[in-house]
Design a protein around this nucleic acid. Structure first.
Lengths: 147, 147
DNA sequence: TCTTACATAGTAATCTTTATAATTAGTGTA
DNA sequence: TACACTAATTATAAAGATTACTATGTAAGA
């Protein structure tokens, strides 16, 4: 299941002339198998046991490479660290203001807004970004308990 | 014109028990009169002449206060500094990938997507954020000249 | 005017990310 | 398989943005 995506990703990297290393493989695996949206530090810590000598820079370098190849999407929310999402298919994100959890949801891609924005501003539009913010079910439950 | 918005903002701050200081007033004025989307450092530099002793921390402190009162919206784009937008009315932003310019544009508020996201994920939705990215007219002109 | 709590300045510290240089290790080719 | 070339990694320093902290200053109400 996940291995199919992983194979595809590895092949995609090879086609871009990117070499495979154990660290790179591990970071990629982590992104594919974990359905979370980890920060660079999350990944670093998660792999610390297997690669005690791995540098944080390696994580960042690889995330940059994955981004360039289009395997991974970087998301930045305000002050916190960037989060990285392995791109499977088009989807939007909803983010919990309380615990920071990120959940995917599907919605038809908003092509129209890009056309409208282009017409109004004269920009040549490349892409858009849409996120919804709120409180996730478990944080809602906690909050209603407290009060 | 701008002073009406400024007065309203000052009143709103007073109602929240926030004291008015010359620095605070100046930062607020800058945000209201400049229609740009400045970074904390932009503001700091712009007011350096009038307040040679002002601390960067003061700028950040005030921006935080303004945000808490809802006068200002913070926007963070990837790696760069946060930008701050004085909230006048609902609008979306389009951002130039080349020079970083931010332009406002109007589009009907996407209420539906909040409802859909809520239904799909169980989140209690608070707000959403939508941005369009591309190349602004002047950067387009420069790029076509070069090639 | 006096008082008090909030705001500011100045600086140190933190956190995330990038840059740099030296070493290590993939990968294609002989 | 061994070699050579070049990319990748490590380790560390550095940059940049933001926050924390403390002493001092000041706005605003009694």
């Amino acid at each position: 299941m996940g291995s199919e995506m992983l194979d595809h990703a590895v092949q995609s990297l090879r086609e871009h002339g990117v070499r495979m290393t154990p660290q790179r493989q591990a970071i990629l695996e982590y992104l594919v198998t974990e359905h979370s949206h980890p920060t660079a530090d999350d990944i670093y810590k998660a792999l610390a046991a297997r690669f005690p000598n791995m540098s944080v820079a390696t994580v960042y370098n690889n995330l940059r490479v994955f981004k360039e190849v289009g395997l991974v999407q970087e998301m930045n929310y305000g002050d916190a660290s960037s989060r990285f999402d392995f791109v499977t298919s088009k989807h939007y994100h909803i983010i919990c203001d309380t615990c920071g959890k990120v959940v995917d949801f599907n919605y038809p891609v908003l092509d129209e807004i890009e056309a409208v924005a282009s017409q109004l501003t004269g920009f040549k539009v490349d892409r858009h970004r849409l996120e919804v913010y709120g409180t996730c079910p478990s944080c809602q439950a906690e909050q209603s308990q407290t009060h």
